[in-house]
Design a protein around this nucleic acid. Structure first.
Lengths: 213, 213
DNA sequence: TTATATCACGAACGTGCGTTCTAAGTCAAG
DNA sequence: CTTGACTTAGAACGCACGTTCGTGATATAA
């Protein structure tokens, strides 16, 4: 579409709407727009708003006072919440949230921006307890963002529960024929080889790690 | 303040306002609130809104249609940007942004929420290049949020430039009498002792670490 | 010239919407 | 019981606000 066709007036209106919403938390009325942009007639404002709507730059709800909003970047669009479901300890399996058990009382949640993580429905967060994962460059108190089980590819950093050792670790996983190789993130450390795939339970893929100091 | 004094109706109103704004981009009218919360009289809604305002939960602009907004987390309020000023390499000093050199063309910036970092004016971000800081639990590609120089306290995780070695590392710093102890985050590694304080240049304090996988 | 489209002005209409007033029901303290 | 604070209800007032209509100015094409 041609986005160049904006007259000076329409640009002024658009700019004013943005500033007004930012400042007041609600959109301006036609008359407020008119006063700010030195337009004496409400019908002129209305005319230009219709123009802007046809251009796709704003939405309007007719017959509704202040019934307009900018289509462009609504601020909250760039933010989302991830439930913080618990702690991850080396000696216990990861507490993966069951899908039917919805966390409603989500006072415990982390707010993130899309810069960090592309949002998906089933993401969840865990706080690491203990220094057992230093070899994965993850320390005590760090928060890991995870995505449950499915579609784990070779090379992904995953949380696995090792049945025989009875412990959880974070490692890169590689399926090699019959056996599984678990590669520590620290290149100085040797990999673990698991001959029997039934001995490992992949609990999720690590999507991101956050550390506050 | 007492936040417990909300009646069921007031909570319903508050919840509806939030949902309405989320959905429509502008606040509801008194009558819309009334219809949604099964309140037949506008004055009752008005009464409860005044209650909520006195409680500090909403703001109202009188004589203005839809003139109300939630005081709690206004979405954009909880977000801020940090300039991504460059890369941090072990073999070079940290590129601390000079205060008079304002980064205006900040296409390179990271959006964060206040959950992660308490916002301050002079924060900046660097992307780590290379595996030279694994002992600080920081890997290649990680992003460190930093705050320049001043008020570095014992135990802070800082970026230091070691003059004699000509390298940058991230370590916890401790001033011990005349000498300086640099303690790796990995507890298995031995500390570095610097006898001559002029040999180290503290370039900033690490506030947070982010890793995308 | 006429025709069509774009843009601006002012006024009037009808309703949306915040405000205010009167009245009444509930409940705990006296 | 009465009193008073709190909450709900209904109605009326009056301005706020989106809409529509008539008018006119300007510009480009036939």
């Amino acid at each position: 579409m041609a986005e160049v066709k904006l007259s000076a007036r329409q640009e002024a209106i658009l700019k004013f709407i943005g500033e007004f919403i930012e400042e007041n938390g609600y959109p301006p009325t036609i008359r407020e727009i008119g006063k700010a942009c030195k337009i004496t007639s409400t019908s002129v404002v209305n005319y230009n708003l219709n123009k802007l709507e046809r251009e796709g730059l704003i939405n309007r709800d007719r017959e509704v006072s202040r019934g307009l909003r900018l289509t462009a970047q609504r601020p909250s669009e760039n933010m989302f919440r991830i439930p913080l479901v618990g702690r991850i300890v080396a000696s216990e399996p990861v507490p993966v949230p069951s899908s039917d058990f919805k966390i409603f009382g989500d006072d415990e949640a982390i707010e993130l921006t899309k810069d960090l993580v592309t949002p998906q429905e089933d993401l969840f967060a865990l706080q690491v307890q203990g220094d057992s994962m230093v070899d994965a460059m993850i320390g005590d108190g760090d928060i890991v963002i995870m995505r449950p089980h499915k579609d784990v590819k070779n090379g992904d950093l995953v949380a696995v529960w090792l049945k025989d050792r009875e412990e959880t670790t974070l490692k890169r996983i590689y399926r090699e024929n019959e056996r599984i190789r678990l590669q520590p993130a620290n290149p100085n450390m040797a990999p673990i080889y698991i001959e029997n795939p039934a001995q490992v339970r992949v609990q999720g893929r690590v999507v991101a790690v956050l550390r506050k100091t």
